[in-house]
Amino acid sequence: MEIIEILFTASFWAAAIRIASPLIFATLGELICERAGVLNLGIEGIMVSGAFAGWMAVYSGTGLWSGVCIAMLVGMLFGLLHSTLTVPFGLSQHVVGLGVTLLATSSTYYAYRLALPEVTSPPKIEAFQPYEVPILVDIPLIGTALFSQTPLTYLALVLVVLVAVILYRTPLGLAVRAAGENPAAVAAQGLSVTAIRMGAVIVGSGLMAVGGAFLTMSAFDSFFFEMVNGRGWICIALVVFGSWQPGKALLGAVLFAAFDALQIRVQQTSFGTQIPYQFFLMMPYILSILALIIMSRRAEVPAALMIPFNKGER
């Protein structure tokens, strides 16, 4: 069977990891926000703004890594806006989040037109190139899949470990988790819930923007409208799928990406050509919904998610 053969090709798994990379960044970002108790629906728009900012910076002459940093800064600015409205002012996280997505998306398009008023097709940049890790790349199957990626993918994988260690092994991570479980407990121990939550949203939004920048600076070498194409919303589901844990979220992202990579390849098989291609486009989403249903039954939602906290009120 052709499908089984596909599953054992290194190029398939390499593609899956590549497709998963932007999802990993953004899912980690959303996970940090939600662990602190704030749902960040600005994710979709922040990814668009990050995709544009990183690409535009490189197009204007900065280095690739500076471009990543600029994308992150833009994301953090939107995070600052989001958290100012949702944390000290305690506004509805749904409304603010969707507002940030609309604002970030449309202001990105506006900036694009300001910067490039004449062009019909967006210019290309010199994007990140794959880097083969010596020795490790020679491991069969896994070597090519994991160790012939671009540096941004390696960064995404390192971040999963880093976020997990910070969340579970440091006083800072404990404070973030406690802020999402019971902010009153944080305040009673003399810590500032406002600072912790705002910090988490700002850092998380920065990661979302890097996820967007991956698309223009690593996966492709140019910026298109509709490029993010709902990946932000997928990441919201991946956080639930991962039960708010970085490791499981990584698993979810790779699984979703594998479905996506698989459907492209199955389309080209003899079996695939007999079925309308839209059917295959649908597959990752259907399989994700099924996985989500199974996984999220045991998920532990942060108890104070979406509940604003005001000092001195019950």
């Binding site: 006083p171 800072l172 404990l174 404070a175 988790r177 406690a178 479980e181 019971n182 009153a184 407990a185 944080v186 305040a187 009673a188 121990q189 003399g190 810590l191 532990e300 942060p302 108890a303």
Partner: peptide, 20 residues
């Protein structure tokens, strides 16, 4: 003022060390 999903130790040590 306790967080249900955290352990007893986590609740007790919360905020007793520098966050950095």
């Amino acid at each position: 003022t306790l967080a249900d999903n955290l352990t007893v130790q986590e609740n007790i040590t919360l905020g007793t060390q520098s966050l950095l």
